[in-house]
Write a protein that binds this DNA or RNA. Structure first.
Lengths: 350, 350
DNA sequence: TTGTAGGCGTTATCAT
DNA sequence: ATGATAACGCCTACAA
């Protein structure tokens, strides 16, 4: 049994009333220093700690946050979670963490369930529709990560810039046909990146980007994407994230396709595994933990409206060049450029 | 604002009393089917959901669990967390997750803070002393992961068997001097593994194990350990976990030491990154998510004493042979066997 | 089967 | 500066 000791016990021991005990523990300057000390001593002696249920019942606040992520085993979300964690704890909040397993139904259910017992909710890369998202927004304060919605505070990385840097790098090396292995179709970030591709194309004359489809944002998804990328005749492939890029690397090696000589590979995020493989993965680094801490800051600012609200935040990114990219030293492995793949003529406007 | 709608609102709409509403939502068979339907309809219409603070104030239960892990970015703990998550949610519990950042003080503080607002606490690889641990155990129901303490339910992997399989594998390949790169000195598992080494030695005549010290259980710790391992003259190294093994692999390659020709490397856990590197890492697989689900099951069983309590559980492990181990085809890189390193003569009893 | 009444532990309001 | 009292929303005897 945890807190069998209540304010009344402390009050009795300190020979004061329950209200005074309560004050001494919160607005401590409203109580005489002498009695305050006596109360604190009594509380410590009895091992008193306030019952959070009773407190939040009357205050209407829980000092808890909720965090919903698609997959804790994805190192991207693990890092964001860690960032959320550390900042929330240092600000006095505990964090419910929920893993939706990339499933929209689960995600909605978790968000709803948590909303009722937190002061605010961080939804990380939510896949649910705008309608469901709006419903959650009605029920509690929400901060979105990797997604934007009018009127809702959000933390995003600069997806346009990610694509610009990745494609710019490959273009500078001499690549002119690049495959894009996309993430989940319901991912807002993926949409942003596809937009980013279109806008980057106008700065990179002669570049062709073949969008080869949507894949699960994990290692296995990358393995599926690899063969399609090869079939487009591309000399390089940009993946939705590092995990997919690692899967692509693995599949290419299994097929005896040399990276980077035959095919360059670029990932996104710079998760720690990116440096473990050989060749090491060229990637665009996103500030993972910082995404989490920024989300907590935004949440706290939304909850306490006295401070001026922060503007939506878009965090900077950084290209990290490693060994998985080089000049396209050999001709494309295939020239099936007319194949029935989803090769949108992305350079139509040139 | 979330739950502005209370039982009384639902009661009014359904033309019944508040208590009937309460009953309809919990012990639904105590209320007439007809009124029950009316109440449920009213509740749904108003979007009612019970205030968890008020409920737990009176019931004394929160339907929340707490989980404390040393490092969420460590894929081992990420997987355990995911397992805890999924099982807890399917049993109707939400989970507070806290990351101690491998720090004992933080860990103690987190455990104490969470203990007051949960029905049970899962402490994963806790580093705190037995005394502090016992204190936490007093304040709430606890299940330990990767540690044992009398009277406290615990889930562990079979550390003795891990070591036996790893050393047995290396021994069979012909290795006779193996370095052990240990984990944190305060880690219970590390202690178990060192015990396991001693017991394994009696089955493996002629084997020598050099314990080269305690390292941080992450990539960087492995890099530090690598040079010490080489200096012992060992032809193989067993690491406390996969992350360290990957760091060792990386450092050996940087030094131009070939794995497995010059040095075999074995990890523990089989985290997903183990297959990404080349050579792929030989490791002893632990059932990561299952550790988490088993911990939740144990917690639930401890909380509801009506069911027969489960015995402490030790989960099985499995050797996974990959490319990072082979026969010791070349002589040791060094023969400084008398060097001042922490080379306990582990085979003293032979 | 349903309603009434009381209390869980805390904080807020009001009075002293 | 401190104390008495009420109220937060719910559950659970007990009464009807």
């Amino acid at each position: 049994m945890a807190g069998a000791v209540t304010v009344r016990d402390v009050a009795r021991l300190a020979s004061v009333s329950a209200s005074t005990v309560s004050r001494a523990l919160s607005a401590s300057e409203l109580v005489a220093p002498h009695t305050r000390d006596r109360i604190l001593a009594a509380a410590r002696q009895l091992g008193y700690s306030a019952n959070t249920s009773a407190r939040s019942l009357i205050t209407g606040r829980t000092s808890n946050f909720g965090l919903v992520v698609p997959d804790l085993e994805n190192p991207y979300f693990a890092s964001v979670t860690k960032g959320v964690q550390s900042r929330a704890l240092s600000e006095g909040f505990a964090v419910f963490v929920a893993d939706s397993d990339e499933d929209v139904r689960t995600e909605i259910e978790l968000a709803r369930k948590l909303a009722s017992q937190v002061d605010g909710l961080i939804l990380c890369s939510p896949r649910m529709g705008n309608r469901d998202l709006a419903a959650v927004t009605e029920s509690t304060t929400v901060v979105l990560v990797n997604r934007q919605l009018p009127q809702v505070h959000s933390i995003t990385v600069d997806d346009t810039e990610i694509v610009r840097q990745a494609l710019g790098h490959l273009y500078a090396l001499g690549h002119r046909t690049v495959a894009y292995a996309g993430g989940p179709a319901t991912s807002w970030s993926d949409g942003q990146r596809r937009n980013g591709i279109r806008s980057a194309l106008s700065d990179l004359p002669g570049l062709k980007v073949a969008e080869i489809g949507s894949f699960r944002p994990v290692f296995g998804g990358g393995m599926s994407a690899a063969d399609l990328a090869v079939a487009t005749g591309a000399t390089a492939v940009l993946a939705y994230n590092d995990l997919m890029a690692l899967g692509i690397l693995s599949r290419l090696q299994a097929r005896g396709i040399n990276v980077p000589a035959d095919m360059s590979v670029v990932g996104i995020d710079d998760v720690s595994a990116a440096t473990l493989v050989s060749p090491a993965l060229t990637t665009v680094r996103a500030p993972l933990q910082k995404v989490g801490t920024a989300a907590v800051d935004a949440l706290i600012d939304s909850i306490f409206p006295d401070r001026p609200p922060l503007p939506p935040e878009t965090l900077p990114v950084e290209l990290i060049v490693r060994a998985s990219t080089s000049v396209p030293s050999r001709p494309p492995l295939t020239s099936r450029e007319e194949a029935g793949l989803d090769e949108r003529s992305s350079n139509a406007h040139q």
